[in-house]
């Protein structure tokens, strides 16, 4: 269960990403990309995120997780396909020489802020 470490890291990066001139804004949403080959369970991460944001600038924010499929390219015949079962060889030529193109993501893409009033600094530290 490393989702708590990951959630805390997400919070830390997201908080540090709020521009200094928008510290008073409310963070409404954190957009995350998680590859299907990552060892992260989205539901667990959602739960941990809801706990990790308490008493931070992200309090009240939602976590949006986009799951990224595992795309592979064959190094021999250049075939590209989506891996949806744990079989890692080319379905066309059976080569094991493959490159994983997507599916290992664990990235924060963006944060979405809403600022009711530019002078509102209630949430500033």
């Amino acid at each position: 269960m490393h989702e708590m470490s990951i959630a805390m890291q997400v919070v830390e990066i997201a908080v540090a990403s709020i521009p200094p001139d928008l510290k008073g804004a409310r963070v409404e949403r954190v957009n995350l990309k998680i590859g299907k080959l990552s060892a992260v369970v989205p539901d667990s991460l959602q739960f941990c995120f809801s706990v990790a944001i308490e008493s931070t600038l992200l309090e009240g924010a939602e976590l949006f997780i986009e799951e990224v499929p595992v795309l592979a390219a064959c190094g021999r015949c250049s075939h590209r396909w989506t891996i949806d079962a744990p079989v890692f060889c080319c379905p066309q030529c059976r080569s094991a020489n493959l490159e994983i193109l997507t599916g290992r993501e664990l990235d924060i893409e963006s944060i979405e802020l809403y600022q009711e009033d530019e002078n509102d600094d209630r949430l500033a530290p």
Partner: peptide, 20 residues
């Protein structure tokens, strides 16, 4: 997000970083 948001502004800040 260099500019200050106007009243009631909604803004998306690109982060694009690996969590780990």
């Amino acid at each position: 997000a260099r500019t200050v948001a106007s009243k009631g502004a909604r803004r998306e800040i690109q982060v694009v970083r690996r969590v780990l």
